[in-house]
Nucleic acid binder design. Structure first.
Length: 423
RNA sequence: GGCGGGUUGCCCGAGCGGUCAAAGGGAGCAGACUGUAAAUCUGUCGGCACAGCCUACGAAGGUUCGAACCCUUCACCCGCCA
């Protein structure tokens, strides 16, 4: 419970840290305030953001106080870390909307309140927004050496490639100022982040040292790549895996993790779940002994859906998976079970004349008509678990399950429901 | 400000007057095999009213029977010089 560093360590969650012994002493001394920031780079957080977010949670469970920071200000500028080209600037409205959504998502993972270990939510726009350019240059910029900044990996990589603007070059100053501000306001003395944030975090420590004569810590979590070398979270399986259920359905999220490579599942269990060590080690053994049972994958998928969408969702998602992979016996399911299983799948409502299957497929799964036709032609389209091969097919009266539903599927992961509007 | 190089589909990248919706690779998607795994193989991979049509090769004009390819202007990027 208290040995948070030991916990992070066996999970493999420590990529880099500043003086580990000093950090251990500070953690032992009582609740430590720590933070992690998330920029509004998209309409939703994605599974890649889960690692640092859950790390905040782990610290909270161990008796420390986490601060979740939404990058309302840094979102305007764009972090050059890990990017090989300049970001496109977003307008204020977009950023504001995204910050709101991201804040709501972060709230799910932490306990907020006024207690000593209750989490805080902040937006760096609050202290950055009204700062003047002069103030910024004098109070922040003065403490940074360009010589040092040029040494940074994220900068030098860009200098060799497509170059970078002064705006992105300055990003590190904003993030450093955030750390200092939280240090001043809340005594925040630890910043966590993905390993690509190492430079940004330590720059903040330097600023605190110089201007506050204070000290703090940095801890980064590894960047995840799958066994096949794919970047995790940002562009996997037909786009990104978003935490927003409207953007990535819980079913798709579940299916994604259910399909985890044997070589990755053990790592993911450590990184992305709160399961205790003994249980994870037992699952490791299960993978080695009877891989075909895929117990570890099931548990992983279950835990992640529970974390992101809640335990209730797990049942629905499993029911849907069982129904769709249960051997095609959809007709055998009673109406409430079927309705529950399909509750979170995207749905299309039909009134009057039934359109051709291709149209329903396109609408239900947000595909172009060409994609929908292609799915049929490739043999990847299913109506009620039966493959459809006729591009001109139109669902018949007998296809409606319980007179109400059609279950459309493309491949293994994409499902949609057509529901007949009540007359 | 001057000179030179560049801007091609999700990404990388070939094409340099017709046979180009554009080679090749990667990613994605689907299928086969399997364990809803990996590897492998196959197909596919701009849109649509789909054996045809429309839109596309930074933008706008022009030359031409015909332009991603030639010319002009503009924008942006990179490099060298100032």
């Amino acid at each position: 419970m208290n040995d948070i560093l030991g916990e992070l360590s066996w999970r493999g969650l420590i990529a880099q840290t500043t003086d580990l012994d000093a950090l251990r002493r500070d953690l032992a001394a009582g609740p430590l305030t720590l933070y992690c920031g998330f920029d509004p780079t998209a309409e939703s957080l994605h599974v890649g953001n889960l690692m640092p977010l859950l790390t905040l949670r782990r610290f909270q469970l161990a008796g420390h106080r986490p601060i979740a920071l939404a990058g309302g200000a840094t979102g305007f500028v764009g972090d050059p870390s890990g990017r090989d080209s300049e970001r496109t600037l977003m307008d204020a409205e977009t950023i504001k909307g995204r910050v709101g959504r991201i804040r709501a998502q972060m709230e799910r993972f932490l306990d907020f309140g006024d207690g000593p270990t209750d989490a805080l939510m902040v937006d760096n726009l609050d202290w950055t927004g009204q700062m003047s350019a002069i103030e910024f240059l004098r109070d922040v910029g003065k403490h940074f050496s360009v010589n040092v900044m040029l040494q940074r990996e994220s900068v030098s990589a860009r200098l060799e490639g497509g170059g970078l603007s002064y705006t992105e070059f300055s990003y590190v100053l904003l993030q450093s100022n955030d750390y200092r501000e939280l240090y001043r306001r809340y005594g925040c003395r630890l910043q966590v982040g993905g390993n690509d944030q190492w430079g940004n975090i330590t720059a903040g420590l330097d600023l605190i040292r110089r201007t506050e004569s204070g000290s703090g810590h940095a801890l980064t979590v590894p960047l995840v790549t799958s066994a096949t070398g794919q970047k995790f979270g940002k562009s996997t399986g037909g786009g990104s895996l978003w935490l927003d259920p409207a953007m990535t359905s819980p079913y798709a999220l579940y299916q994604y993790f259910l399909n985890t490579d044997d070589r990755d599942v053990s790592t993911y269990l450590r990184y992305l779940t709160f399961l205790p060590r003994e249980e994870i080690e037992a699952l490791d053994a299960a993978v080695a002994e009877r891989p075909h049972a895929r117990e570890a994958q099931r548990r992983l998928a279950e835990e992640i859906v529970a974390l992101v969408h809640g335990r209730d969702e797990v049942g629905r998602v499993q029911a849907a998976s069982a129904a769709l992979f249960g051997g095609g016996a959809l007709e055998g399911l009673d109406e409430p079970t079927l309705a529950a299983a399909l509750a979170e799948a995207p749905s299309v409502s039909v009134a009057g004349e039934v359109p051709p299957l291709v149209d329903l497929l396109a609408e239900g799964l947000s595909l172009s008509k060409s994609d929908a036709r292609r799915a049929v032609r490739d043999g990847g389209a299913y109506l009620n678990n039966a493959r459809v091969t006729d591009e001109a097919a139109v669902p018949g009266e007998g296809d409606w399950l319980h007179g109400r539903f059609l279950v459309l599927r493309r491949g293994k992961r994409s499902v949609a429901v057509v529901e007949r509007a009540k007359a």
